[in-house]
Design a protein around this nucleic acid. Sequence first.
DNA 1: ATAACAATTGAACAATTGTTCATATGATGG
DNA 2: CCATCATATGAACAATTGTTCAATTGTTAT
Lengths: 111, 111
Amino acid sequence: MALRTAAIERLAITDDRASELADLFRLLGDATRLKIVLACMDAPTAVGAIAERLKLSLSLVSHHLRLLRAARIVRADRQGKQVFYSAADDHISGIVSAMLEHVAEPRGVDD
Amino acid sequence: MALRTAAIERLAITDDRASELADLFRLLGDATRLKIVLACMDAPTAVGAIAERLKLSLSLVSHHLRLLRAARIVRADRQGKQVFYSAADDHISGIVSAMLEHVAEPRGVDD
DNA sequence: ATAACAATTGAACAATTGTTCATATGATGG
DNA sequence: CCATCATATGAACAATTGTTCAATTGTTAT
């Protein structure tokens, strides 16, 4: 039923709404940024820890996190000097999971 | 359980797999391309019909469809001179729906 | 106040990408 | 075979975007 509702909304989607959606997808559409999302999806993680785990510069991680936070894909919680990031809600995890399933699907014979 | 499995995989995600996922998200991350996906998601639609409905050039629509088809986000079915495009599977619709819900969510007080 | 640690920000550059225009391919009917 | 319709492709340009380096802000402890 949730799918049916979405199908109806989809028919009447405005350009603004499409752009809003696209913006979110685009943020997940960079490998580095996606890995950052995945890294702080399991448990709240500090910027430095993310950078270390993924072997990325602090600056780069912070830049990406700012974009992700602005889009409410992740949320920031300051705890002393450190800022812990985590997934903003369950939609994101669900979306990533669904895409993982899509990738895992068997290829057709004609491609 | 599907979520739990995905969560486990997430911990051990490789760089290649992250890039593969990101590529898919990036394709949905352009407003024009996303509208094309939405346009042929409800029912199989010919290239010309999509272009007309969205008021885009045939060339542009075709270029985007080629990328979407290569990523198996949409599938192509030739019927005479026309080629009808439709969503490749249910994952895509589910993903778009989930993102629509994410957008529809009430904002927090502090942003 | 100062030092040290953690994270953020701004500017600049290289690389990627969306769009357009022109041309080509494939299918159908005369 | 030729003309026409429908889609696809290639090259080129403008615009966006990821990354780096340097400098800055915020927080805690001495």
